[in-house]
Design a binder for these strands. Structure first.
Lengths: 341, 341
DNA sequence: CCTGTCTTGAGGTACGTGCCTCATGAGCTA
DNA sequence: TAGCTCATGAGGCACGTACCTCAAGACAGG
């Protein structure tokens, strides 16, 4: 078995000193491009990889990962925060520090401001739930230039300098919902409730859902989407109207939040368990809906898995060779009453 | 923020020397029980945790994890092996070495022999796909006594000294299959095909499936289980007979392997796409079945996730304080054509 | 008392990298 | 040529743990 190459080997191979290798590896100034190229060539030849253990040990400080998570009553975001706190305990022994900062939901300015406030001295990697906005876009690029690796979580910011997106394929999630609901319902109408068409993930789910349902189950009539703004009472009204106006309603797909409202409407209509319902994210509300039979299927993002992936990526990105990291994709969790965890 | 306690702090707190702390931490001989207890008390008081980075760095050798995987034509096991190889590249930089050794399938003696051959000098942790057998049981216990942490993968060995089981809840998987198939099929007969009732995971799936189907969907009639011994041709015959004998067959649950045979039978009968089919494990065969519509749902164990969990556990178990490690549970992956990865 | 065994202390080196200082030399400008 | 900047080399300390040697003390049995 081949022994791993060390910085010493790289220095020898490149014909330079340890100090120069160190300068190149850690992006310090004072190296001629030609010399840097020699070092990089040696790294390639030897397939050198920085030893993570030694690297973390030698740094005085831990690897710091800062999560910028929307605040508020959104239970899914609270689950994310809880998942971070859980992981935080386990990674203490691995020289990792996780920090969560809460941002006002949908406040792009606040998010950009928080990003700009991060200093590379106290933050190696930022993980944000992105809002699609120019100010955020600029803040991501600026942070990247300062040497902070930025990753997007749940909601992506394509085109920016973010190193990685961690989240599910929302178009596929929509298709999956349609595929299940189509098999569940032979005929009748399917009502769609969304949070807001201003949200990228909601748009993508809707797109996947309607495209597949139209193509594969043309017998089913699509109603909506109605926008409940992820709000309990508003969602309840929408669902109540759907149920009242359409006695032949056979399914509901709620691709946003506001599930407590949906459940209340189902309960009051007396048709819970008769109408097939698919919702998103395992929460207190959706779990109890699954148990009671009011909800048939919940599609979930698996916050723990996402946090785990973010941490793994942070380790690789902050200390690794950079570009070539490829994360395991986050799978869409599908939960029935019978495989609730 | 509190600075992490080091071995020096432990020594001071316990009123002993560094050497003694080292002896206790690494299980060396020559420490009186009373002294060891003082050290352990200090560890508890300070909440000391061995620094993984430094620990791995100081050891001359890497942390070695050996996987004992059944050989043969089983595509799922091949996927496991491939997942190990994939991970192996990524963990090189983290002072981890993964090794796969192949064992003749269902050969308990061979498995026990391989376990007994492992030396603690060259193996910190063994991961086995357990066969339920006394010899294996004894070999697991013996390896544990030699200082090798043993974990079971996919198939458990309850009652042995194995530190952890990594795999899905097979009873829940069976329930999930029943829950879906019940919603898909309004009436008619459901055929069950198993590999072998001698396999623990197959028994558990069957148990979960039949219990839930009887309770929640009493209108559906259960046929079987028939045993196809995870074999292509045998499974094909069973499926062909089911289809021929029961024109009102509305669903099939294959809880074992042998899916190529099942697909062939469906194809020849001309009823692919009309009979609802649920199978296990994403493989070449089941993927193509999902794409063609012959299979509706595949329940999957997620080999990559299992290997990831095994590695995380190995790190924690081989170097950690031991007992208090708790792994994330492996989720049952549910795949339709529309969320195939 | 002596001899042997067991327990404990003291101190060192090593692992691979990060980060620091200081010296040296090359190349430039005035 | 003197004075300057920049590129590079040389070397050392530090991080926290593993593992080694050697010596000293405790305590036993004879």
């Amino acid at each position: 078995m081949q022994k791993r190459a060390t910085v010493h080997d790289v220095a020898r191979q490149a014909g330079v000193s340890l100090a120069t290798v160190d300068r190149v590896l850690n992006g310090r100034t004072g190296v001629r491009p030609a010399t840097a190229e020699k070092v990089e060539e040696a790294i390639r030849v030897l397939d050198f990889r920085r030893d993570l253990s030694a690297s973390l040990l030698a740094r005085a400080r831990d690897l710091r990962v800062v999560f910028l998570i929307p605040d508020g009553k959104n239970e899914f975001m609270a689950n994310l925060t809880a998942a971070i706190a859980r992981k935080s305990r386990n990674v203490k022994a691995e020289r990792l520090t996780l920090e969560t900062r809460h941002i006002r939901p949908l406040d792009a300015e606040a998010l950009a401001h928080a990003l700009n406030a991060l200093e590379p001295k106290s933050c190696d990697c930022a993980v944000i739930v992105a809002t699609e906005d120019q100010a955020v876009h600029r803040a991501v690029d600026a942070a990247t230039r300062r040497g902070i690796a930025v990753m997007t979580l749940v909601s992506d910011l394509p085109g920016s300098a973010r190193k990685l997106f961690i989240g599910i394929d929302n178009v596929a999630a929509g298709r999956t919902a349609a595929s299940l609901l189509g098999r569940f319902c032979q005929k009748g109408k399917i009502g769609i409730i969304a949070g807001s068409m201003g949200l990228r993930d909601h748009r993508e789910r809707l797109e996947g859902f309607t495209a597949l349902l139209r193509k594969e189950f043309p017998a089913l009539e699509i109603l909506g989407p109605a926008e409940g703004h992820d709000e309990r009472s508003e969602t309840e009204h929408l669902a109540a109207d759907l149920l009242a106006d359409h006695p032949d309603l056979s399914g509901i797909y709620n691709l946003g939040a506001g599930n407590p409202g949906l459940l209340a409407a189902l309960e009051k209509s007396g048709r819970a368990g008769q109408v097939r319902v698919i919702a998103h994210e395992l929460t207190e509300a959706t779990r109890s809906g699954l148990r009671s039979g009011a909800i048939d299927v919940v599609l979930d993002q698996n916050p723990d898995g996402e946090i785990r992936a973010a941490i793994a990526a942070a380790r690789a990105l902050a200390l690794g060779q950079g570009g070539d990291y490829h994360a395991d994709p986050i799978e869409i969790g599908i939960f029935l009453r019978d495989n609730l965890r």
